[in-house]
Simulated scan of single mutants.
Amino acid sequence: MTETLTEVLATCTERGEVPVRHKAPRAVRRARDYLRAHLSDPVTLDALAAHAGADKFHLIRAFRAEVGMPPYEYLTRLRVARAADLLAAGMTGAQVAHTVGLFDESQLHRHFRRIFGVTPGSFARTMHRQHRPSYARVSRLACPS
């Protein structure tokens, strides 16, 4: 079996094909771009994998290795970071939840509290009192680039 695998890999590299491990960063990059572009849309793993040009299970492993979290968690953090921006701008929690693609306000509340450690309402009140001085720092905490 080892000989066969070695022969297949040698044949692939002789024809100029890139082994799968070199495609992972490109697939992850494409997946991240797709998630950013479809922030408020429902995103399926199949659609994400098709866009990235990778098998969905390989994409999940490569994404976690490259970004430090699976794609769905990354999307959730993108949505919560966007929600923080909208809350700071004065939108209500219900409006924000719908705008960023979350199911309802309770889902926003649960994820926001898990990621930022405060409720969306507390965050909004603090931002309005402080006139939004530290949003850039808060969004970097929610979602690594």
Rank of each mutant, 00 (worst) to 15 (best):
E66M: 05
T76Q: 13
G93L: 04
E7L: 10
R140F: 03
H111E: 14
V43P: 01
A54Q: 15
R137Y: 11
A97R: 05
R129M: 12
R77G: 04
G121P: 05
Q95S: 14
A52D: 04
M127S: 13
V96N: 00
M69Q: 13
R15V: 14
H38S: 02
M1E: 11
H111C: 08
A62L: 02
R21I: 13
L87F: 07
D41G: 02
D85W: 08
L45I: 02
A65W: 05
F63R: 02
P144N: 13
L86I: 00
I115R: 05
A24R: 15
M91T: 05
R114Y: 08
T4C: 08
V80A: 08
L75T: 03
T126W: 09
A65P: 02
R114H: 11
T126F: 08
E105F: 08
E14G: 09
Y72W: 09
V80K: 05
S139Y: 08
L9T: 11
A142Q: 05
V96T: 15
M91A: 10
R125K: 14
Q107R: 14
E3H: 12
D85A: 12
L78D: 07
H58K: 09
L102Q: 06
F116I: 10
V80D: 05
V118Y: 10
R29N: 11
M1Y: 10
H128P: 02
Y72F: 12
H131D: 13
T11L: 15
A94L: 09
T4S: 12
L87K: 03
R77Y: 06
D33V: 03
V80W: 06
S134R: 15
R129T: 13
V118H: 10
Q95I: 09
F103Y: 13
H98R: 15
G117A: 11
M69E: 15
F116R: 10
A27T: 00
R140N: 06
K23N: 10
V18G: 13
A50S: 12
P71H: 07
R29C: 08
G53W: 07
P133G: 07
R77K: 11
Q130V: 09
H22C: 09
S122C: 09
V96I: 05
A97H: 08
V138G: 01
T76Y: 07
A31K: 01
G121R: 14
R137P: 04
R113G: 07
A52L: 04
G93F: 03
V43N: 01
A84C: 03
F116Y: 15
M1P: 10
V28E: 01
L87E: 05
H128R: 13
H111A: 11
P70N: 11
H98T: 12
D41L: 04
R30M: 08
E17N: 10
H38K: 03
S40V: 01
M69D: 07
E105R: 15
A24F: 14
G53R: 06
M127T: 09
L48P: 00
F103V: 12
A24V: 11
Y72E: 12
R64G: 04
P42F: 01
R32G: 08
V67S: 02
A49T: 00
C12N: 13
M69T: 10
V138M: 13
P42D: 03
R64I: 03
A88V: 04
H128K: 10
A94H: 10
R30K: 12
P144F: 09
V67M: 07
P120H: 02
G93K: 07
L78R: 10
Q130G: 11
C143W: 01
L102W: 04
P70W: 03
L9N: 14
